[in-house]
Nucleic acid binder design. Sequence first.
DNA 1: AACTTTTTAGCACAAACGTGCTTGAACCGT
DNA 2: ACGGTTCAAGCACGTTTGTGCTAAAAAGTT
Lengths: 208, 208
Amino acid sequence: MPKIVDAEARRQEVVEAVFRIIASDGLERASLREVADEAGLAVGSVRHYFVSSDELLVHSFAVVIDRIAGRLEEAYAVVESLDKASAEHDAAVLTLLGQFLPLDEQLAVDACVWMAFRHAARIRPVLEPEAARSHRAVAAVVGRLVMRLMPDGGSIQEHLVTEAERLLATLDGLCMHALLQPEWMTAEVCRDVLTAHLETLVAVPSNR
Amino acid sequence: MPKIVDAEARRQEVVEAVFRIIASDGLERASLREVADEAGLAVGSVRHYFVSSDELLVHSFAVVIDRIAGRLEEAYAVVESLDKASAEHDAAVLTLLGQFLPLDEQLAVDACVWMAFRHAARIRPVLEPEAARSHRAVAAVVGRLVMRLMPDGGSIQEHLVTEAERLLATLDGLCMHALLQPEWMTAEVCRDVLTAHLETLVAVPSNR
DNA sequence: AACTTTTTAGCACAAACGTGCTTGAACCGT
DNA sequence: ACGGTTCAAGCACGTTTGTGCTAAAAAGTT
C-alpha cells in the first residue's frame, strides 16, 4: 500500500490557498502556479489532487457555498428556537443576516470568494450549476425567514416572493458595498440598514 | 497636415468594442487583441489611440460612469419637475430607479460593464479612482431622491444616510440578481421590489 | 511633385497560463 | 528486504498577453 496522506485534508488546504488568493488578488490570479505557491506545493502536486484547473475552481466554489449555507442554517435554527416577540429573537435575526456580510476576517474572505465565483459564473459555464445551487440554498433560508417575520405569515404568495427577493437584494447589495466601498459602508451602517429593513418588513402597509 | 480622422470618435468606437466584449465574455477577455478584433482594427492601431491597456480600460470605465450618471441626472430632473403627490411623480421615480437595472439591451450592457469594473477596482488600483467617483455620483442622486421622498424631507441626518444607503444597496442587489440570475429576477419582480421599497420609504415607522 | 505628420499595421520578446508526460521519493504490506 | 502504489516535483509544448519598436500607407501643405 502507498504513502498514507489524508487526501481530503490536502484538498482542503489547497482550497484554502485558493480562497486567500481570490480574496487578496482576485479570481483571475487563482492560476495553478499561484495556488501551488500559496499552498507551498508544486504545480504537479496540486494537479494530483485536482485533475484540472476547472475542477479546482468548481470544488472551491462548492466549498464556500457549503460553508455559507451551513452558517445560515445554523443561525436560522437559533432564530426558530426563540420566541417570536422576544428581544433575543430580533438579535438572532440580525446575527443571521450578518452571516452574509464581511463583518470579520473569515466572513470577509468567504464573501469575496462567493462574489467572485458568482460573477465569474455569468461567463464560465462550468461554474453555473454551483451558482444556481448557491442561489437556491440562500433563497430557501431567506424565504423561510421572511415567512416567519411577516405579520400575516407570508400567506399571500406574491408578497412573500417580493419581500424575500427584496431582502435578498438588500443583503447582496450591502455585501457588495461593504466589499467594494469599505470606507463608506461600515459595520455600523450595515446594522442600521438591516434594522431599518426589518422594521419595514414587519410593518406591512395597509394598502397591500 | 496628416490624414484627418476624428480621433475622439475612433476612441469611442474602441470603447464600444470593449463594452461588447465585457458584456459577452467578461472583463478578463478584454485584451488588446480581442478589442482590436472586435473593433475591426489592428493592435497597433488601438495602441495609437490608447497608450496602454490600462488607459483603455480606465477610459472605458469613465465612459460608462458618465453614461449612467447622465441618465440618472436626466431622470432626476424629470422627477423634480413634477408635483410630489402626483401619479406621474411616482412613475418618474420608478423610471429613475430603473436606469440601474438591465431592463433593455443598452442598459444591460452598461450594467454588466459597470459591475465588472467596480469589482475589478477592488484589486486593480488604476481603476479605484473611477470607482470612487462612480460611487459618489450615484450616491448623490440617490441621496437627493431619498431626501425628496422621505416624509420629513430627510431632516434627520442619520435616517437620511441610512435610507439612502438602504435604497442604494437594494438597487445594486437587484441589478446583480438581474444580471446573474435572470431566470429568477424578471423585470416584473424588479418593479414589484422597487415599489415595495418605495412604500417603506414613504411610511417611516413611528418609533424612529 | 515633394514633404511632413498622422494613421494603420505588424514583428519580436518576455512572461504567464493549462496541460500531457516523465521521473524520483516516500511508504505500507508482504 | 522487497515490490507496488501513491505522492511530489518538474519539464516541455502550444497559447495568450502587454509592450517596445519599426515601417508602410494616407493625405493635407508647400
